[in-house]
Amino acid sequence: MSPPEIILWQRLRQRPGGFKFRRQHPAGGYVLDFFCSEARLAIEVDGMAHDMGNAPRADEMRDSWLRMRNVQTLRIPASDVSRSPDQVIEWIVNNCVERAGPLHQPPAGPPPRSGEDV
């Protein structure tokens, strides 16, 4: 993993927003940097190499393959992770919440006791 990926993984493994993330997750013939199954969200940390040669086309082909399987890809510049990791995490969690829908709500307080209306 690159240094920005390590920085991001240190935060994602703490399950921000209650979401579980996997790193180096296989998807078809691809390996995703990070993946949240509940939100069907792939997270790719893009360094400068992603702007060179055939990389942009390969990235678009992978993103298209994932979209056909209802997986959204967030592409995050490595420099953003290094500069503002907390803002990147907030953006990722917001995207997870949008994609996971209303069933994913962190508990607001203690669970109801037996026999109480929910």
Rank of each mutant, 00 (worst) to 15 (best):
S2H: 09
P3T: 10
P3H: 12
P4T: 11
P4F: 08
P4L: 10
P4K: 13
E5Q: 15
I7L: 15
L8D: 03
W9N: 12
W9V: 06
R11C: 02
R11G: 01
L12M: 08
L12N: 07
R13S: 10
Q14E: 14
R15H: 14
R15F: 03
P16N: 04
G17A: 07
G18W: 08
F19S: 00
F19W: 04
R22S: 13
R22K: 14
Q24D: 11
H25D: 11
P26Y: 08
P26G: 12
A27Q: 12
A27D: 04
G28T: 09
G29S: 12
Y30S: 10
V31C: 12
L32A: 02
F35R: 03
F35S: 02
C36D: 02
S37A: 15
S37M: 14
L41A: 05
E44A: 10
G47E: 01
G47P: 07
M48T: 05
M48Y: 12
H50M: 05
G53L: 10
P56T: 04
P56D: 05
R57V: 01
A58M: 13
D59K: 01
E60H: 04
E60V: 04
M61T: 02
M61P: 00
R62P: 06
S64T: 15
S64V: 09
S64K: 11
S64G: 05
L66H: 04
M68Q: 15
R69Y: 10
R69D: 13
V71N: 03
Q72A: 15
L74V: 06
L74A: 05
R75T: 14
R75P: 06
I76T: 07
A78E: 04
A78Y: 05
S79T: 09
S79R: 10
D80P: 01
D80I: 00
D80L: 13
D80H: 09
V81W: 00
S82F: 00
S82A: 12
S82Q: 07
R83V: 01
R83A: 11
S84L: 05
D86E: 14
D86M: 02
V88S: 02
E90Y: 00
W91A: 02
I92Q: 01
I92K: 03
V97E: 08
E98H: 11
R99Q: 11
G101W: 09
P102K: 15
P102F: 07
H104C: 12
H104W: 14
P106S: 10
P107M: 12
A108F: 14
A108Y: 12
P110R: 08
P112F: 10
S114A: 15
G115F: 09
E116W: 14
D117W: 13
